[in-house]
Design a protein around this nucleic acid. Structure first.
Lengths: 96, 96
DNA sequence: CATATATTTAGATTATCATCTAAATATCAC
DNA sequence: GTGATATTTAGATGATAATCTAAATATATG
């Protein structure tokens, strides 16, 4: 009946609407921080903070490209999250 | 690219590990507050607070039975949440 | 109706979180 | 290497949220 730290970080990550919007945007294609930023009103520092939380939850990956950093949705972890979700709330098995 | 208030309350509701545990417990069968409480360490007031948040998100339903209140998992809303999940993070459609 | 039981509500406290500005770091182009 | 651009880090602030104790409400029972 306990939950790994990893699960915890995923649920925390998707709790915020701005971060869900970031994931939603990245669903279409990978993007630099500046491109992501163009969709929002808040500061670069705030965006960096959100990206860091998503990264820690492994929901996104980053790679360097010159001065830019390109963020990508980590689809396998998103799918894992869906499974966990199903396991906690729907399936007859206990949360493992 | 916006989200209803209802979605917001659902994501907030499942962000807390105690509330996810409550949902996980209710998956097996409906329960009185006292029964739910036996699974946790925190005070009754705290449990009541969590149940209220789950109720506002419509993830659980309550009915009276004498002095007790019986909480039930609202399966249709849990399923709805799974769909929203898929829509935001996986499917090619935008979040509606 | 008085007392016991079940649960919620009120109000306070502490911790966590989203956001900001300013400064730091890294890379590129000249 | 100097200046410009991209992004992150540090530190502060205000808002939200989790929890507690004490008090209130509702129901049941003798």
């Amino acid at each position: 009946m306990h939950e790994t730290i990893k699960h915890e970080s995923m649920f925390t990550a998707i709790a915020d609407i701005q971060r869900r919007k970031i994931l939603n945007i990245l669903k279409r294609s990978e993007m630099s921080v500046a491109e992501i930023k163009s969709h929002f009103e808040f500061s670069g520092a705030t965006l960096s903070h959100h990206l860091n939380i998503l990264k820690n939850a492994e929901l996104v990956r980053v790679r360097r490209q010159g001065q830019q950093r390109i963020y990508t949705l980590n689809l396998s972890v998103v799918e894992e999250l869906l499974l966990i979700f199903n396991q906690i709330f729907v399936s007859k098995e206990d949360e493992k």
